[in-house]
Design a protein around this nucleic acid. Structure first.
Length: 475
RNA sequence: GCCCCCAUCGUCUAGUGGCCUAGGACACCACCCUUUCAAGGUGGCGGCACGGGUUCGAAUCCCGUUGGGGGUGCCA
């Protein structure tokens, strides 16, 4: 943080989140945009934390941001990554810049209180500050704010996504740079930091577009050429409103905890407002990185569609090799995520079942419920499933018949299937109906992985015990 | 109120004046496959907001209307 001039010529993209205790999916997308560009252009991704007083007391919030970024592939260990910097570190520079703007006539002090400003606005019939102190020549003093002297004319923002956006300066009020207590405002701090860090590209959400002319005027008043701006559309919910913490699931950490894969999340996020070439949206990051162009980003807000995200995640899960899948399952197989006693878990058994589980889930968190019956001491019967299954004709008879035959059958998936089929045929049941009572008795549910493979792995003793328990339960 | 942005199937998008009878993906529906549930396969439904221009020709360019969204603090 020294020169203020970007000497290397390489682009410097800055990502400036403020810690709030969670990492917003919209922020993740913006970060990804910056990252793709910085990577592809041999530039730098500069992380600057816009830390507030509260955030400074909660270092875990900042760690959370760095952690979330790492999860989506933006690692501080990568040479493209620079930072993190903290806005609060540079407060003195912010004040110094403000004082310079005052000395050079770009700013002036004003002693009006908010109430007085409101009264004047009401009297004039126009909202906002009217420039009352512009020419009063006030010196700094307690309670006096420093305001920027917005020049005449218009400010044109050249935006890589929006094109040319023109703002009439007389619609922009003389905004505050320094508060009455002398502390710098966010807008000023932001620009001073960007200037000092030699930022060349500011890629952020569209909600910041109305602030951009102010920032651009600050860049110019400070004697620097403004950066290249790019305002990307926001992410919205089904009501077409900006995603909000209150109503929507916006925390990246939550998706991670539910078992969404980082690759799937990244891929999905990048298809919101942009699309890779060709007919397939499922593409690896390497392709996204090289194909991504800000000029190709859509102009309208994009709906964050959970169903499509889920579909992407399913695709990614199915695309994994079985070994990779088993590895990815690890966090859900042990500890609190696992509903079974730790000593009953059998990695070999799970490995045998993995391929059958893989096509049946959308998020990794669904893994335990699909295989829990294998590692629980006994079946956890779902009453609804039980009632529904045994309401069907002959299902009790089917269960007894299977119990009898299973005692003597050659214990293989194939033989178990044949036997079940035979028992069913004797009762006039097709295989689909015939397997149902056995499934509920052994797994506790009506749905699950293919039954006979599971039975083979469970072993004759366990299966017969569960069938007996079920028969007793039937009364 | 004022300022700014936006507008292709329900959703995400392809499309940059003729390749468009508007393509793909998700969702939905049907059928096939099938030991449940999935997965997979095949097919289907479904869109250029509206009105004016410009042009031989407009989803694509211009203007307007309507409809959405965002911003408007001594918040960040």
């Amino acid at each position: 943080m020294s020169s203020g001039t970007n000497t290397s010529g390489a682009p410097r993209y800055r990502f400036a989140p403020s810690p709030t205790g969670f990492f917003h999916v919209g922020g993740a997308r913006t970060a990804l945009y910056n990252w793709a560009l910085a990577k592809n252009e041999g530039g730098t991704f500069v992380l600057r934390i816009e830390d507030t007083d509260e955030a400074r007391n909660r270092p875990e919030w900042t760690e959370g941001i760095i952690d979330a970024l790492a999860w989506i592939g933006i690692s501080r260990d990568d040479p493209t990554f620079e930072g993190p910097y903290f806005q609060s570190q540079y407060a003195e520079a912010h004040v110094a810049a403000a004082e310079r703007l005052f000395r050079e006539g770009h700013a002036y002090y004003c002693d009006l209180t908010s109430e007085q400003i409101q009264e004047r606005a009401k009297a004039a019939g126009k909202p906002g500050y009217d420039g009352y102190s512009r020419d009063r020549g006030l010196e700094p003093g307690p309670g006096r704010v420093l305001r920027f002297r917005v020049p005449e004319g218009a400010t044109v923002v050249d935006d890589l996504v929006r094109g040319r956006v023109e703002f009439q300066n007389d619609t922009i009020e003389d905004f505050v740079l320094l508060r009455g207590n002398g502390s710098p405002m966010f807008l000023l701090a932001n620009v001073v930091d960007d200037v000092s860090m030699g930022i060349t590209h500011v890629v952020r959400a569209e909600e910041h577009l109305p602030n951009t002319p102010k920032q651009q005027m600050l860049w110019e008043a400070l004697g620097h050429t403004p950066p290249t701006w790019a305002h990307v559309p926001v992410l919205v919910n089904e009501q077409r409103k900006k995603l909000s913490k209150r109503r929507d699931k916006v925390a990246l950490e939550q998706y991670r905890a539910e078992g969404y894969l980082a690759d799937a999340m990244v891929n999905y996020l990048m298809t919101l407002g942009w699309a890779p070439q060709g007919d397939t949206e499922i593409v690896p990051w390497s392709r996204i990185q090289s194909e991504f162009r800000l000029e190709d980003v859509n102009h309208s807000p994009a709906f964050f569609d959970l169903k499509k995200l889920a579909a992407f995640n399913g695709e990614y899960i199915r695309a994994m090799s079985v070994d990779d899948f088993v590895a990815a399952c690890e966090p859900w197989l042990h500890g609190e995520a696992a509903p079974w006693p730790a000593d009953r878990f059998d990695a070999g058994v799970f490995r045998s079942l993995a391929e059958l589980v893989q096509t049946r889930i959308v998020t990794m968190s669904e893994v335990p419920t699909l295989v829990d019956f294998m590692f629980l001491p006994e079946a956890l019967i779902d009453q609804v499933a039980w009632d529904k299954t045994f309401a069907a004709a002959d299902s009790a008879a089917m269960l007894r018949s299977a119990r009898e035959k299973f005692a003597a059958v050659d214990w293989s998936a194939e033989a178990l299937k044949t036997t079940t089929e035979e028992c069913g045929t004797a009762l006039g049941l097709k295989l689909g109906k015939a397997q149902a009572p056995v499934r509920v008795a052994v797994t506790g549910r009506t749905v699950g992985p293919p039954l006979f493979e599971a039975l083979e792995l469970l072993g004759r003793d366990a299966v017969l015990t569960r069938l007996d328990t079920a028969i007793t339960r039937l009364g």
